[in-house]
Simulated scan of single mutants.
Amino acid sequence: MQRKSLRFGKGFRVAFSVRRAQAAEMVLAPGDCEGDEDNRHRGADQWLYVVSGTGVATVEGRRVPLKTGTLLVIEKRERHEIRNTGRTLLKTLNFYYPPAFDGEGDPVGPGREH
């Protein structure tokens, strides 16, 4: 068993990984984005849950509005960008299957970005 209290400080932070899954928190300031038209995880699905804030996800060119309570699955190899379009922090909890990042937040293994 692993347990961690999430802080949701600015930026991307891996919480921990177990076997074939990983949890991470991501916080974007108003106007900031993560990813771009070439961002994708080669071998990992990303489950993104919006804890608070508003934004938009662009997945394979399709815009998806994000707000508190939204759950979005970005499948492996799908190009995507997450952008904060609101006036407050966009806080998300993300799960990767399999793990896509090391403890420093750098892409690793089969989930690494292409």
Rank of each mutant, 00 (worst) to 15 (best):
E78W: 08
D36N: 15
E60R: 14
G31E: 09
G9V: 08
D45T: 04
G69W: 13
R79P: 08
K10H: 15
V56S: 01
R7G: 05
A29L: 12
Q2W: 01
P99D: 08
D102T: 04
S52Y: 05
R77G: 07
G11Q: 05
N39K: 12
H114D: 12
C33Q: 15
S5V: 13
D32K: 01
G103F: 06
A57T: 10
E78I: 01
P65M: 09
V18P: 05
L89K: 11
N39D: 10
R19Y: 03
P110W: 07
N39P: 05
I74P: 09
R77H: 10
A21R: 07
P99R: 01
V56R: 01
G111E: 12
V51D: 09
N39Y: 11
E78K: 09
E25R: 00
M1W: 10
F16I: 05
F8P: 14
R40V: 11
V73H: 11
R20K: 02
L66F: 09
R7F: 01
D36W: 04
V18L: 08
F16C: 07
T85G: 00
W47N: 08
P107K: 03
P110V: 14
L66T: 03
L66I: 05
L28H: 02
V51M: 11
L93F: 00
T88K: 02
K91G: 06
V27G: 02
E60Q: 13
R40Q: 14
P30K: 00
V50K: 00
G55S: 05
Y96P: 10
G111S: 10
Y49L: 11
Q46S: 04
M1D: 12
E60I: 04
I74N: 14
G43E: 10
E34M: 13
R77I: 04
R40K: 11
V50F: 00
A57H: 08
L6M: 14
P65I: 07
V64E: 15
A57G: 07
R87V: 00
Q46W: 06
E25F: 03
A24D: 09
V108P: 11
V108R: 06
A24H: 00
A29R: 13
L6N: 08
R3T: 11
R42V: 10
E78G: 08
T70C: 07
S17E: 14
V14K: 00
G103P: 10
R13E: 15
V14F: 04
P107A: 02
R83N: 02
W47T: 13
F8V: 12
T88C: 01
A100Y: 15
M26R: 03
E113Q: 14
L72A: 09
K4L: 14
L89N: 12
R62C: 07
G11C: 02
E104I: 08
V59R: 00
Y97T: 13
K10V: 06
R42N: 14
F95D: 10
E34T: 05
D106Y: 04
G9W: 01
G69E: 12
T88W: 02
Q22W: 01
S5L: 11
